[in-house]
Nucleic acid binder design. Structure first.
Length: 447
DNA sequence: AAAAAAC
């Protein structure tokens, strides 16, 4: 199977070769003909399986065939600002030589450049709902020419927080084709979706609702006051190139960043309370490898494509069960391997059955050596150490003090990068455990 | 019980 047989235009095929795309993924092979036929579509496929291209390519083909008529031709709605940028970038990359323009509009930044770009003419608009309503309501942007509407992360876009805005936007559209994509679609959201679709084709890959099979998994149980210390210890001992850490609130994100700093690890907080500038900087630096640790709320759970991210850590579980799949799905994308570490507190034991449903090969839950299910907060995190940046608290006692990202690779452990290399037992994948590095206690590496 | 999304 190749892209040639899917009915895409010649310049598009040319670009795909240059982008290194050779074979369509399952969801692409199935979705592209449906969207080219003009029918509505609801498509569910695993994280990292190429959903963006699955809707972007047929849209670009349709628009390049049609010739420009003026006005916005296609509208893609997404739940976060960074995802808007990422999806628009993908359209721009794929549309090289087609003479089509894509723009991302989202809040938190000056609206004027967005208005000016819209005035100059945009064919494909990728938007977060609030800013789009601002543009249509206050600035007279018309959506009447939209021929295709895509809801990316559609189940999220249809939930209570977003649905009213999506409804307002939809009322501004004329006749159009609708497509909905996500890695998760609970029955409730599916029913909502079907109200918006007419005679839609429904696609679901076999492995949906599960984490990718090439994602190794480890589950630990220890008392919450020591999570920060445990993360610092893991990062140091396993020598991971990078890790994306999920927490359940903005405050937890800030606190963990401060705690990791006391352990000599530099991290950035990434959540909705940050300025858009700080969000952009944090994500950019993480993507470019300048930053080793990003501590995020679920603003980063969906859609973000961080190339070859080796490790994702979930401290606790997200509130919606489907969001765990999205969190863990930031790693092991596009067929690559990855590692997911889930850290639970004893109170979360009740959530284990849920975990089992998403991850059928759930490994044994480990309480690492030196930790117990009931621990006090370590001294160095106490006594206001976190709130007095001027003083120099227990930094020296931090286990990673003095270790710098640049000195990681090869030197201390004499090992290869990444923490997943080398395996003496011959079957690291099947048992779901990455190779252990450094001098981690025996029990700790079990997964 | 949380997060996200406009000003």
């Amino acid at each position: 199977m190749s892209f040639d047989s899917l009915g895409l235009a010649a310049p598009l095929l040319q670009t795909l070769i240059q982008c290194g795309y050779r074979t369509p993924t399952e969801i692409q092979a199935q979705s592209i003909p449906v969207l080219l036929s003009g029918r509505d579509l609801i498509a569910v496929a695993q994280t990292g399986s190429g959903k963006t291209a699955a809707f972007a390519l047929p849209i670009l083909k349709q628009l390049s065939d049609k010739g420009l008529r003026g006005g916005i031709q296609a509208l893609v709605l997404v739940p976060t600002r960074e995802l808007a940028v990422q999806v628009a970038d993908a359209f721009t990359r794929y549309s090289a030589g087609l003479g089509l323009t894509t723009l991302a509009v989202y809040g938190g930044v000056n609206i004027r450049p967005q208005r000016q770009a819209l005035a100059a003419g945009v064919d494909i608009l990728v938007a977060t709902p609030g800013r789009l309503l601002d543009l249509t309501g206050q600035f007279g942007l018309s959506l009447a020419s939209v021929g295709t509407l895509v809801l990316d992360e559609a189940d999220r876009m249809l939930d209570m927080g977003f649905a009213p805005d999506i409804e307002k936007i939809r009322r501004q559209l004329g006749p159009h084709q609708s497509a909905m994509f996500s890695a998760s679609f609970a029955q409730r959201e599916r029913e909502l979706a079907e109200r918006w679709l007419s005679n839609a084709v429904s696609l679901a890959a076999k492995d949906t609702g599960r984490i990718p099979q090439q994602l190794a998994l480890e589950v630990f149980m220890l008392d919450k006051p020591r999570w920060a210390e445990f993360v610092a210890e893991l990062v140091g001992k396993r020598n991971w190139r990078q890790a994306l850490v999920f927490v359940s609130s903005r405050e937890e994100s800030n606190t963990l960043v401060a705690e990791l700093a006391l352990d000599g690890l530099q991290a950035a907080a990434f959540h909705g309370e940050k300025t858009q500038g700080a969000r952009r900087r944090g994500l950019d630096e993480f993507k470019s490898g300048k930053l080793r640790l990003l501590v995020a709320t679920d603003v980063a759970a969906r859609g973000l494509d961080i190339e070859d991210l080796p490790v994702v850590i979930s401290l606790g579980l997200p509130h919606g069960e489907e969001d765990l799949i999205h969190r863990l799905g930031r790693s092991a994308r596009a067929g690559r391997e990855g590692l997911a570490v889930i850290v639970l507190s004893p109170e979360m034991r009740a959530d284990l059955p849920l975990l089992k449903a998403l991850c059928p090969a759930l490994p044994e839950v480990i309480t690492p050596e030196g930790y117990s299910p009931k621990d006090p907060l370590p001294q160095r995190y106490r006594d206001g150490a976190l709130s007095t940046p001027g003083s120099k608290p227990a930094n020296r006692s931090g286990r990673n003090a003095g270790q710098r990202p640049g000195t990681r690779t090869g030197s201390r452990t004499g090992s290869r990068t990444g923490g997943r290399t080398g395996s003496s037992n011959g079957s690291p994948r099947q048992s779901g455990k990455p190779a252990r590095q450094g001098n981690a206690p025996k029990r700790q590496a079990r997964g």
